[in-house]
Design a protein around this nucleic acid. Structure first.
Lengths: 134, 134
DNA sequence: ATAGACCTTGAAGTCACTTGAGGTTCAAGC
DNA sequence: GCTTGAACCTCAAGTGACTTCAAGGTCTAT
């Protein structure tokens, strides 16, 4: 393997500055370096960063992600604490999925009605907008 | 009707400061005031703020929400522009739904495995963590 | 009429990046 | 071997979207 930062960023849907930022705040461990000083990564890093990004996409705060990740790494503690964090956010996550689903329906309807009215009609004739506001 | 800011905040899952902030940056119109100077709102505001919050939950930037809302209000323009914004974000939204779904499965598995191992076992015996990192 | 919840403004603080400046390393083509 | 250009480096400052604070005014229930 041996990925450079740009490749890792692409694989995990993040950005190079974000990865450096995570390293700086200790969410990722200091990366191994090549001779020239450039960071290089392996598969483990891909898995870990993917997990972190998913948590962040769901707006789990950095401090809680840090806790989950640290508990994942040193296996000498009970997982109760981590389980509780996970459990709490699972409820939130489900609520959020429902909200996003509602938004998806709203916007899908919007787009379809706009298309149906041939895209050149004035807004007030675009039923979708009235719908979207309900 | 006639809601005060706190009630509106509760109904729309926002906060009073957030509502004032939205008014300040022009995302919401200046609110009607009672005698004492306190803001009062109606059903229209509930609908509008709910739509705004859903967009924000999905991290649509304020400027794009502003555009959708403004297009919604003055019906004298073609809806093409709004349709495009909506369409672009619909794709993103679906990708995000898939990601959140993946996270939900990961975390559900995590919680279940933790429960199964009786919550007192050390982390390394908690299969869920290894799973979560895939 | 007075306690306590709820409201007002403006300014400062916070979180999680993101961008910019100015320089170094690396892989490819000549 | 040399050059060119993309991708990398560090450090500091900037940004978006709130959130919190300070210092007060208003409203409702007892």
């Amino acid at each position: 393997m041996a990925l450079k930062i740009g490749k890792l960023a692409k694989l995990t849907h993040t950005s190079a500055p974000t990865i450096r930022y995570y390293e700086k705040i200790g969410l990722l461990p200091p990366a191994n370096r090549q001779d020239g000083g450039q960071r290089c990564y392996g598969e483990e890093d891909v898995r870990r960063l993917t997990f972190i990004r998913r948590c962040r996409d769901f707006t789990l705060p950095i401090e809680q992600v840090r806790m989950l990740v640290s508990l994942m790494r040193n296996g000498d503690r009970s997982c109760t604490e981590a389980r509780d964090v996970a459990q709490r956010h699972l409820l939130l996550l489900r609520a959020k999925l429902a909200e996003l689903d509602a938004l998806e329906r709203t916007i899908t309807g919007l787009v379809q009605s706009c298309d149906a009215s041939r895209a050149t009609a004035p807004m007030h004739s675009c039923e979708a907008w009235r719908e979207a506001q309900r």
